[in-house]
Design a protein around this nucleic acid. Sequence first.
DNA 1: TTCACGTTTGTGACCGTGCACATGTGAACA
DNA 2: TGTTCACATGTGCACGGTCACAAACGTGAA
Lengths: 340, 340
Amino acid sequence: MTENLPKVRAPSIRDVARLAGVSHQTVSRVLNNHPSIRESTKARVLQVMEELQYRPNRAARALSRGRSRTIGILSAQSSEYGPASSIAAIQDAAREAGYYVNTANLTTVDQESIEAALMHLMLQAVEAIVVIAPQVRVFDVLEQLSITVPFVSLQSTGHLDDHALSVDQIAGARLATRHLIDLGHRRIYHLAGPQDWIEAEARMRGFLDEMGAMDVPTTAPILGDWTADFGYHAGRELFGRRDFTAIFSSNDQMALGLMHAARDAGLDIPRDVSIVGFDDIPEAAHFWPPLTTVRQDFGELGRRCIALLLSNLPGGEPSADRDPIMPRLIVRESTAPPAF
Amino acid sequence: MTENLPKVRAPSIRDVARLAGVSHQTVSRVLNNHPSIRESTKARVLQVMEELQYRPNRAARALSRGRSRTIGILSAQSSEYGPASSIAAIQDAAREAGYYVNTANLTTVDQESIEAALMHLMLQAVEAIVVIAPQVRVFDVLEQLSITVPFVSLQSTGHLDDHALSVDQIAGARLATRHLIDLGHRRIYHLAGPQDWIEAEARMRGFLDEMGAMDVPTTAPILGDWTADFGYHAGRELFGRRDFTAIFSSNDQMALGLMHAARDAGLDIPRDVSIVGFDDIPEAAHFWPPLTTVRQDFGELGRRCIALLLSNLPGGEPSADRDPIMPRLIVRESTAPPAF
DNA sequence: TTCACGTTTGTGACCGTGCACATGTGAACA
DNA sequence: TGTTCACATGTGCACGGTCACAAACGTGAA
């Protein structure tokens, strides 16, 4: 009687087993590619699966194996081009490796917000965490909460530790700085990112290293917040003084704001001031003037990130490619030799 | 003996129950805020949970309830500002409502890729799907695969059906168009988005409606792909003819490309040509010239999207606020009366 | 024929939670 | 004092997989 009622339940391995005339364990073996299964049996099971439109239940799997196959991303500014591209690349790579991705956004980067986001991720039993945010603070909280999940930070310095994977930001920043020096600039400002983003710190270090190596005196970098608005306001102040001939901005958005402020001040770029950005967002080629910048391969970064993470997880391939990705200088029209 | 071995297992409700001297079911009741539990009992259980650092196991929950509490996002162009902002807002709203979010990106928008992405989402037993992509094709595939999960599309026309939620894109486009007409423009081009994005279609319709209502003759819109590169190339061609005095671009990136092309052609904006964008990305205020555009509240959109979705799910609040969100015209410096 | 051994398959328990149902408890009322 | 009822709590099983172990089978050597 009740057997004739329409089933709403999705088919389980036991349903498949019954129709294929085998045990549920055999079905499970087919699912997991167990080596010793007769070809004919396997084929029969697969056919029944197809007929029933069987889909394995992820929750059941996670429960019984004790592994969620989920990776968490902790991200700030996730709607900006850099982070967004990285996130997309990570998701794609993870999906390909059979992992799921869950993102927790930081609206503000205070302790409380970071804790809440981490909690959210831990509640889902993520097996690893990728940090795309001000690392310094996040790592503090990670330690405080004694979270033991492996984690990777996307952006980092050039020297690699276990948790870091990087575009070689230092090299990229040196490239940009060297370009300005080679053009003849000697008074160069650096508009940096927030101090607790290691990526910002790396770019700053690259700038300082290159300036030092080339024996060019430097002034203290200005700490920004990555936004075009900040670049604009910083620019209004800087262009009042004009004690410099070039600025290296640590991302393209702030560079855009700087150029806006320069026009407001009646200055021509690159004649009066040269500007270099960082990231090469798709819009950079269409800024006025088209922006000289440093291109990062976010996609490659995301893929490597997952590879590194998986290698740290049980059953992962031993070692991923850890060489830093080398960024490229893209010279456009926002840089030129100084006019005087 | 074995009891003394270090436990690696995370504590379960039974561990909590034992220490609190109650049954596992009582613990479960505390977890789910069951009304009839004595305050003192509840307090005791909560205290033990705290001591043990107990965290509910999501997989077990999903399995036993038969609900994953996960929402899937199907997204194309997920690193662009609009989609990325929406995704972030959806994630935040979902998290607040106790849901998890999983995003599947479309690298290409062909049938196969859409199918793969949908499969990925279905394998996780998502309870609902948000589409931020060319709807027409995605909906076809949804139907083909006979996927029955409720779904919502973020961008849509002004008339609301069950699956749509919108910024009133038509009204926004009319606002932009009207602004140009009010300035005195009579020969206005429209640079539209890809035809199978309903959002692109809505903006186009708004443009055509307003032009019709004001009795201004129109030419066929140009179909773009949302990128600044496309805007640039379209601009190179358009500015060769110059049989118009204004362009309404259906997003800010393409508008940026247009302005780039205009400069290449030696034209001044807004003196020779007026340009209006759509979205008001954070960079738009710093373009040269600062871009007149239509502002969308992506955050509000994301929140409403989740509200609508939850109202369709079992146990959801009845009806969310379905009034379309009205966009706002932001007048900057890329528009002016025609010179002749 | 018998036994050892590898391959293929089956049995039953278990993962952590929620649900249906049963039970215990005390207050209100006849 | 017994009955009724709402509240508070406990018991046992189901969810859909996986794991450890056992069993059936075929094969070749002693």
